[in-house]
Amino acid sequence: MTNSAPIDDVSIGGDGIRLGQFLKFAGVLESGGDVKEAIIDGYVTVNGEVDRRRGRQLQVGDIVTFEGRSVRVCP
C-alpha cells in the first residue's frame, strides 16, 4: 500500500515519547480527551498498525497516522 500523503517530521528533542503525548505535541489532536478517544477507538496507527495504547513508547523513526495525516518522530 502506497501512502501518497506527505509525512511531516516532528522533532521531539530526545530519544522517545509516549504516543498520547506525541499526538498533542505534534498538533495532530488538541486535547488529551480527543487523544484518548482516537487511540481507544482504533483511529491511530503506528508504523501502519493500529495501536490502542496511549502509553506506547515511540522511538525515533516511528510514523504515526491519524485521519490521513502522518507524522514521523525525529530526534
Rank of each mutant, 00 (worst) to 15 (best):
T2C: 13
A5M: 10
I7E: 14
D8M: 10
G13S: 12
G14V: 10
G14W: 13
G14F: 11
G14K: 14
D15Y: 09
G16Y: 14
G16R: 15
G16M: 15
R18Q: 12
L23H: 03
L23I: 04
K24R: 15
F25N: 10
F25Y: 14
A26Y: 01
L29G: 04
G32Y: 09
G32A: 11
G32I: 09
D34S: 07
V35S: 07
E37Q: 12
I39T: 02
D41W: 09
D41S: 11
Y43A: 09
Y43F: 11
V44N: 00
T45N: 03
V46Q: 00
N47Y: 02
N47A: 06
N47W: 03
E49V: 11
E49T: 12
V50M: 07
D51S: 07
R52F: 14
R53Q: 13
R56F: 09
R56H: 09
V60I: 15
G61F: 06
I63N: 01
I63K: 04
I63Y: 01
I63L: 01
V64H: 01
V64G: 02
T65Q: 08
F66K: 07
F66N: 01
E67Y: 14
G68T: 04
R69W: 00
R69G: 12
S70H: 02
V71I: 06
P75W: 09
